[in-house]
Design a protein around this nucleic acid. Structure first.
Lengths: 166, 166
DNA sequence: AGGTCAATCAAGAATGATTCCGGATAAAGG
DNA sequence: CCTTTATCCGGAATCATTCTTGATTGACCT
């Protein structure tokens, strides 16, 4: 993710280069590998751009998604996250600390085959593996579990489910 | 998905066989291939069991998930769905009508490899392809788009994103 | 430098699937 | 039939996200 090319694309689309957008771009460039969520981006971008509201943060993220600059990683049980890596890969999602790691993988399904056999026309995909990252599976309480807040107050059963399924 | 075996498992776990649970099992057995969501299950199960509340429907679905009878397919932008097929496969999700189709695929990632190279211990996965099912891509207004209600009022931009990404 | 209009802000209300609560009901075993 | 206690119900609560409204700002072009 190159700051210059992002700015370039915004200009091409006729969007204005504002301080707020620049601050958010900076966060995406610097912390993109963390797959930051809206709250993280908001908190971090504010350090450089004091006048930034949460609604603008959401709006900007959505702009960037709309223009294909980033992708959204949606979750039901936790905050959504941003994906800056548009290359083909899968995501390793830690169920304990919420860390998301990219793992490169070549295409696993042939879109033409699917279209021929089922009539289904593929336009996008999402592939994730859940489990525990190195730190969390080692018992080392690496990143704080608070990094993966849940949308609903209690979802312990779901945690159980996550850790028992395969 | 066998009705008898589900009941068997509930008994083994010491759970009571109630009319509500039986009605929900029936829906899962009859309409499991549709990957029904909570609202569908609720609506359908009520035809047989008048005294069934939505909260009980959710609670029961969560019981079944906890005991590995079904899996959850979570979405942020639409209602979650239930997956009764526990065999390895991917899901083809139609962005227009919301239909979800199973597509069998052999393992695409070697868990041992991932653990060796990244230290990440995989416990579960999720793989989905988005696009348009045969009916919807043919312009035949097959299943009504209303079958895929969104959680938030307007997500047109997200639709755009879904249909433009690859 | 000035004008235009997109972008932003604040502050809040709305959204909607899902979860939680306290009191009522009924399944299962004796 | 009776007791126990899991289950159920109705309704309130939850929370990330979206959407208001109206006023202000500031990016960009001429």
């Amino acid at each position: 993710m190159e700051k210059k090319s992002v700015i370039q694309r915004l200009k091409e689309k006729g969007l204005k280069i504002t301080g707020q957008r620049l601050a958010i771009i900076d966060v995406l460039v610097e912390h993109g590998h963390l797959h930051p969520g809206a709250s993280f981006i908001y908190r971090e971008a504010r350090k450089k751009q004091k006048s930034l509201s949460l609604s603008t943060t959401y709006a900007t993220i959505n702009e960037f998604i709309r223009y294909g600059i980033i992708k959204a990683l949606e979750f039901d049980e936790r905050e959504n996250r941003c994906e800056g890596n548009l290359d083909e890969h899968i995501n390793l999602v830690c169920d304990r600390c919420g860390k998301i790691t990219d793992y490169p993988v070549s295409a696993y399904v042939d879109r033409t085959d699917v279209a021929k056999t089922t009539g289904f026309v593929i336009t996008g995909n999402r592939c994730e593996y859940y489990g525990y990252c190195r730190d969390c599976s080692n018992g080392r309480e690496g990143a704080s579990p608070a990094a993966a807040p849940r949308k609903h107050r209690s979802r312990e059963h779901f945690r159980e489910f996550l850790s028992s399924r395969r």
